[in-house]
């Protein structure tokens, strides 16, 4: 559409004057038909280039940042990395994460006895992944979450926790991309470190964190 300059930074769109052939309307309709016909022929010849995905036989592969269903990662010894610090449930704008914390008898580590995500409330913003200080929650590229009852939308530890060395390939939104050296914070919370026997015998002794963390 032709444009004319009104003043610096402003242009006016001027509609074209119609010719006689355009005013009688049939020629333009035929011209439009030719354009759609050209598209049709092009698509028939290049049908492999059609931007169509025959779902569910063919599935779309999203990027490595896709924010799909969550997983909880595990350490090499099979325990969940999550330490039930409630950071994800605090950061969650949809308030869809419910955590109950427990204490490991053996290591005195806090861990989740209940970790529920209501996928119907979840808005898949990825804030839980950003908030996690323990590298424990990731989002996958899984976007097929059809359910038949509301109750099944609440996924718990059983659905979320994945085995150790779960392949990174299906992962989507994650705390970092590329290699990252994890030495653990000062004192260490077990990230990548072998678990040790607690140096105290029974619950009556108050746990001394320095003793446990030391060395």
């Amino acid at each position: 559409m032709p444009i004319e300059r009104v003043k610096p930074g402003v242009v006016r769109v001027v509609p074209r004057k119609l010719t006689f052939a355009e005013r009688v309307y049939l020629p333009r309709v035929v011209a439009g038909m030719f354009l759609t016909l050209r598209h049709l022929l092009y698509n028939l010849i290049n049908y492999k280039k059609l931007p169509i995905i025959s779902y569910p036989e063919v599935k779309r592969v999203y990027s490595e940042r896709f924010r799909g269903r969550h997983i909880l990662t595990t350490r090499e010894d099979g325990t969940t990395r999550c330490v039930a610090c409630y950071m994800c449930s605090t950061a969650c704008p949809a308030e869809c994460i419910t955590i109950e914390a427990g204490e490991d008898e053996r290591t005195r580590e806090k861990f989740p006895v209940r970790y529920d995500i209501d996928l119907l409330r979840c808005v898949f913003c990825g804030y839980c992944v950003d908030a996690c200080p323990e590298d424990a929650i990731y989002m996958t590229r899984d976007y097929e979450m059809a359910i038949d009852t509301r109750a099944r939308a609440v996924v718990g530890l059983r659905d979320l926790v994945v085995p150790p060395n779960f392949p990174v390939e299906p992962m989507g939104w994650r705390p970092y991309y590329g290699p990252l050296e994890k030495k653990g914070t000062a004192g260490g919370t077990g990230l990548g470190q072998p678990l040790r026997e607690a140096p105290f015998e029974d619950d009556s002794t108050p746990p001394n964190p320095d003793l446990y963390r030391g060395a």
């Binding site: 950071m87 605090t90 200080p133 050296e181 653990g184 914070t185 000062a186």
Partner: peptide
């Protein structure tokens, strides 16, 4: 801004900032 994850995992200082900003 949340500190980079590398610092959160490896430094107490950044972990505290991270915690403060979320909470």
């Amino acid at each position: 801004a949340l500190p980079p994850k590398e610092k959160v995992y490896n430094e107490m200082e950044s972990l505290i900032y991270h915690f403060k900003l979320i909470m």
